[in-house]
Amino acid sequence: MLTPIVIDGLSDAALLFLVAVGLTMVFGVLRVVNIAHGSFFALGAYAAITLGLWAGALGLSQALSYGALVLSALLVAALFGPLTERLCLRATYGRGEIAQMLVTFGIFLILDDVQKLVFGVQERQNDAPLSLLGVCNLGGIVYPVYQIALVGLAVVVAFSLRWFLRGTRAGKLVLSVVHDAEMARFSGIDTAKVSVAAFTFGVFLAALGGSLASPITGAAPGMSAEATILAFAVAAIGGLGRVEGAGLAALIVGLGRAFAVYYAPAFDRATPYLVMFAVLLFRPQGLLGVVETRRL
């Protein structure tokens, strides 16, 4: 009994991590909580499914579906990242949280309808990436290999993000801007450019999460809201802005949800929120978050 629950929990955790990682990274870097995060997640999923189906319809190799997963995330990021940051977000820097939340919420609402207009209100699915890899048997239960591979993918994303931020010049540049924007500006860094790049990268991560998850979850209206809420729950449990925290939180919520599915099915959807309330009640800064006190 335990093995399937743990496997379900782990693959759910992988999905949750992919949902949350972009949100938490953008907050860590720009101090912006992007309520539209879930919209980019959903757009990534829609784009991946659409591209994959096109490739299939054109008679191209099915393996191209995997390329479509990454390509679609790139497309969404290139299309929406710079546009959103330049036109909307930039005007809100330094104007308080409400302006920022309203703007990202506005973008969220607009994109929600854009999705319905462009992709329709039917659920969409492309299971080519799923079926190509076949299935495997773990502890007597049959799983799609892709679902198991996703756990590995999530770990790869986590570590490459860590390496990017800490180990590369571009990453260090970004972190220096986060650390002290004023100082960075004085030392000749174009902070405006860094902001666009960081936000676009965040959109890319959100869309990548959506596209990688799409073979399993499909795409349907309502997905963006759920993704935003889930992403925030996971990010908040781990500590907003902490990538490692998001990983830890995804594990907890994923396993918790898997147990709920077996033992208390009425609560499976509410699990992430209940975990979030429980954690924030005792640690408002999240599991790995740091408390910031204002100097007087």
């Binding site: 969220f108 609402l109 607009i110």
Partner: peptide
């Protein structure tokens, strides 16, 4: 019916960016 959320979204942007 598919433009209702979009209308709300435009309101949100207008308020946040132009008439706080």
């Amino acid at each position: 019916p598919l433009l209702w959320e979009m209308a709300m979204g435009l309101c949100a942007l207008a308020v946040a960016l132009f008439v706080p």
